[in-house]
């Protein structure tokens, strides 16, 4: 069953021109991008810097409006909604950002950070402060942290712990779709693995759908059932993960997969020519 449909999404940015000529340059961030996401699935969105993958996530999160095309979430077209209705949808689509240091307000305690989405959507959830605090404790346990941690501040935690606070915050309103914007790329490799396995565990437990934005193909392969490749705003490939890795259809896909370092040293792209 489809939870998210992205149809013919296009977004241009116009850079501000100089004082004298007044004309800006047009940058195509997204060009006619369409794909579907099934409920309970993880889809990887892979592209290099500047490919438009961040723009895509910002549009899905409602932070920006597309120039044309539409996003259908669970049967409702987001562009037809009023501001109030769109706010209600925000509770069901949540995000975990790449940088766990910058995405948590340093002046807020962990309790307030995780409680924030519940306070914002209090009109929908109808929770009292005590219920919110209980839910924060529950969420902290869910992301394998301790209830006591709720009285501390973000700077007292490591990167992996902060990212788990970010995940707890994203889970607070029981969302259906979570946009993971390179959630592990700022972390150590060992911590990455912990966070990834936590994400997989949560997905099974809570029946979540992940939109996993990354430039790390190995991580995408580990977490996702299918992936789309974006380059210069265009969707170049949309395939199940195994067929993407076994037989990429696009040149870009072949290039990306060819560039992946292999565990087998004989097949590594970094091997010396003489050894080949």
């Amino acid at each position: 069953m489809t939870i998210l449909q992205v149809e013919n999404l296009t977004k241009h940015y116009v850079t501000s021109g100089g004082y004298f000529d007044g004309r800006g340059e047009t940058i195509v961030a997204l060009d006619d991008v369409s794909f579907d996401v099934r409920r309970g699935e993880s889809i990887g969105i892979v592209g290099e810097s500047g490919s438009g993958k961040s723009t895509l996530s910002r549009i899905i999160l409602g932070l920006e409006r597309p120039d044309s095309g539409r996003i259908v979430f669970d049967g409702t077209d987001l562009s037809t909604l009023s501001k109030r209705e769109l706010r209600a949808i925000c509770a069901r689509i949540q995000v975990v950002f790449q940088d766990p240091y910058a995405s948590l307000n340093p002046r807020m305690s962990v309790r307030d950070l995780i409680a924030e989405p519940m306070e914002i959507h209090r009109d929908i959830l109808g929770m009292s402060n005590a219920q919110i605090t209980d839910r924060v404790a529950e969420l902290l346990t869910l992301v394998r942290m301790e209830e006591d941690h709720m009285h501390r501040y973000p700077h007292e935690f490591s990167g992996g712990q902060r990212q788990r606070i970010g995940i707890a915050r994203a889970l607070a309103c029981k969302p259906q779709l979570i946009v993971l914007d390179e959630p592990t790329s700022a972390l150590d490799v060992s911590v990455q693995a912990q966070v990834l396995s936590l994400l997989i565990g949560l997905q099974d437990e809570l029946n979540l759908t992940y939109l996993f934005i990354s430039h790390d193909l190995a991580v995408v392969r580990y977490l996702c059932q299918s992936a789309i490749l974006i380059r210069k705003g265009k969707l170049v490939e949309n395939a199940p993960i195994e067929s993407l890795f076994d037989a990429p259809e696009s040149d870009y896909g072949r290039m990306l997969i060819g560039a992946m370092p292999d565990i087998d040293p004989d097949r590594s792209p970094f091997r010396l020519k003489s050894e080949a």
């Binding site: 995000v95 950002f97 914002i120």
Partner: peptide, 22 residues
Amino acid sequence: AELYVLAAKAQGGGNTRILTRH
């Protein structure tokens, strides 16, 4: 321009909340 302000917007937070809390 901080990411946590963007995060609050993504959660659906209004101007008043972003100004007073963040």
